[in-house]
């Protein structure tokens, strides 16, 4: 790891991800190995917003999944908030995500049977936070993202922009050091997308944000943009 990465929120050092790498010696080769990411290095400082740009299939989502601990690299090392994510077991990665990462997806992924407040409080449920504190925190975050009057609404009663703001509040609930946003405006019109991004990057202070998008306006909100092409970082 390079010395200048020491205080970074996220450090990726020569990270590669190859799919279908393990093949049976007895049952043939199966599908050919696919290199989704190749020797990508990256650092993100606390409080920094880094955009990951690139066309479809360039490895943006793969990189985000690796940083978030949803997947493991086949080579290289990833450190997030001081935790080496590269070699964690599945159980350790689950705990890591709960404690260090807030996830925002293109499709929101809210639980339709819970209210906006219930959805926001989910990470706190897993953290064993008491009901009153969960409720207060969820309401505070919903106020923060401009949904103070929608707390008891279920996702089905919310617009796309409102649902994504609930998802942002959920990602912030456990106060993680890092927010990972994969195409956060992909399902929204331009105006709504811009409003959602403003909510996402507002007052994030020491929290690092890594967002992947192929949308120029979205990437314009980032402090700097890292370009990926065919799984490799290009300057």
């Amino acid at each position: 790891m390079s010395p200048e990465y020491t205080d970074a929120a996220v450090v990726c050092a020569d990270v590669s991800r190859v799919y279908n790498q393990r093949q049976s010696r007895f049952l043939g080769t199966g599908a050919d190995p696919v290199t989704a990411l190749s020797d990508v290095s990256l650092s993100v400082s606390p409080g920094e917003v880094v955009g990951i740009a690139g066309p479809s299939g360039s490895g943006k989502s793969t990189l985000l999944h690796l940083i978030a601990g949803l997947d493991s690299p086949t080579d290289g090392k990833i450190t997030v908030d001081g935790v080496d994510v590269s070699n964690l077991s599945g159980r350790q990665r689950t705990k890591f995500r709960l404690e260090h990462v807030g996830l925002i997806f293109q499709r929101f992924y809210l639980l339709p049977s819970l209210s906006a407040r219930g959805n926001v409080a989910l990470p706190l449920v897993e953290q064993g936070v008491r009901k009153r504190k969960r409720r207060d925190r969820a309401e505070e975050l919903l106020e923060q993202v401009g949904l103070g009057d929608r707390m008891t609404h279920r996702p089905g009663k919310l617009s796309g922009g409102e649902q994504q703001r609930v998802a942002i509040a959920r990602a912030l609930a456990a106060d993680p050091a890092l927010i990972i946003a994969d195409e956060p405006t992909g399902e929204l019109d331009t105006e709504t997308g811009n409003r959602v991004l403003e909510v996402l990057v507002q007052d994030h202070s020491e929290r690092a944000i890594v967002l992947a998008s192929h949308d120029e306006e979205t990437l314009a909100k980032a402090d700097r943009v890292v370009q990926l092409v065919d799984g490799k970082r290009v300057e």
């Binding site: 689950t94 705990k95 996830l103 639980l111 897993e126």
Partner: peptide
């Protein structure tokens, strides 16, 4: 996807 989401945000087994 809801199960996957819960697991993604840190729900343990």
């Amino acid at each position: 996807t809801q199960t996957a989401l819960l697991q993604a945000i840190g729900f343990t087994r």
